[in-house]
């Protein structure tokens, strides 16, 4: 009897803890979700009382018409391919490099130097893509760029960077890693710091080398964090960093075959049409794909390691 009561009490307390957040989610996230129906409507003003909700209710249903624009182009395949390939590549590279950096930082003997490195690694996170694009331009500018001047001084042919798509997968990859590694390695580093040091001591006493400790202590302990970040990144497989693909190549048309991704395509369509239904439809499709992928990834992770799964 008393055990049951304490069970109810516990549930009550824990519920009270999540409640403020839950309420916030309700108002700020779930209520606006009513707007998703915009994807299936032709949003028009309801002249008698044009509030948002009235407009929404009285607009005509259009079925899937708002989604058509995503596939009305001969370039659908290109932007889908680009979006997914870049994402897959960057999820893998990002994971490996960020974990490696986190372990390195953790293993350095001089903590002051480690802190300094870490601070510096975070700087790109502060710089917007616009600023980064100017920096890149200083190197790749067709007339005054450092790289082309270097090539010319060596008697080599100069490269028209902003009109030659083949270099851009590499350039974009470097840019993406440059900006995000600092951010994700700090998450891994914090997770490593949380590992119980007695585990290392025990391993050391058992005669494990540093490499063995990394493989048998650090990485297994990082597994929940790796899995969670992986799952969440998989959920964004159909999204892309707009600024990176739009601003960094200076919006150059000749590069579209390498830089057009779903977000830039939608953006370009919407500046042309400014249709709120279409923008909602585009976002909804991205989210739906992400949702399917994330559920799948979660299932896979759950099979391998129950505890590391998202839910």
């Amino acid at each position: 009897m008393s055990k049951k009561r304490s069970g109810i009490k516990k549930t009550l307390f824990l519920t009270s803890m999540v409640l403020p957040g839950a309420i916030w989610f309700f108002f700020l996230r779930y209520l606006p979700m009513a707007g998703i129906v915009l994807a299936f409507k032709n949003y028009k003003v309801y002249p008698k009382n044009p509030t948002f909700w009235n407009n929404l209710m009285h607009s005509a249903w259009t079925g899937l018409k708002n989604f058509e624009f995503l596939f009305a182009t001969t370039d659908s395949w290109i932007y889908i391919r680009n979006t997914i390939c870049y994402n897959v590549l960057w999820i893998i590279l990002g994971l490996v490099i960020a974990v490696a950096f986190a372990i390195m930082l953790h293993e350095l003997t001089n903590k002051f130097v480690a802190k300094t490195y870490q601070t510096l690694m975070f700087f790109p996170y502060f710089l917007s893509w616009v600023v980064a694009s100017y920096f890149l331009l200083a190197f790749l500018d067709p007339t005054r760029g450092l790289v082309d001047n270097f090539l010319l001084s060596k008697g080599l042919e100069k490269i028209d960077w902003y009109n030659t798509p083949k270099y851009w997968p590499v350039i974009l990859t470097i840019c993406n890693l440059w900006k995000n590694i600092g951010y994700s390695s700090i998450l891994y580093l914090a997770a490593i710091t949380g590992i119980d040091t007695t585990q290392y001591e025990a391993a050391a006493i058992d005669g494990a080398t540093k490499w063995q400790q990394i493989f048998y202590v650090t990485i297994p302990n990082l597994r929940p964090m790796i899995c969670i970040l992986l799952i969440m990144n998989v959920g964004k497989i159909f999204n892309s960093d707009f600024g990176l693909f739009y601003t960094v190549p200076l919006n150059s048309g000749s590069l579209f075959s390498a830089t057009q991704v779903i977000d830039t395509y939608i953006y370009r369509v919407l500046t042309a049409t400014n249709n709120i239904g279409m923008s909602t439809a585009g976002g909804l499709l991205q989210n739906a794909v992400g949702f399917v992928c994330i559920m799948f990834a979660n299932k896979v992770v759950k099979k391998i390691d129950e505890d590391s799964a998202l839910f």
């Binding site: 996230r29 979700m33 009513a34 707007g35 998703i36 915009l38 976002g283 949702f291």
Partner: peptide
Amino acid sequence: TMLFGGGLAP
């Protein structure tokens, strides 16, 4: 809510 959102206007 990480995946689905109502969009800016709503």
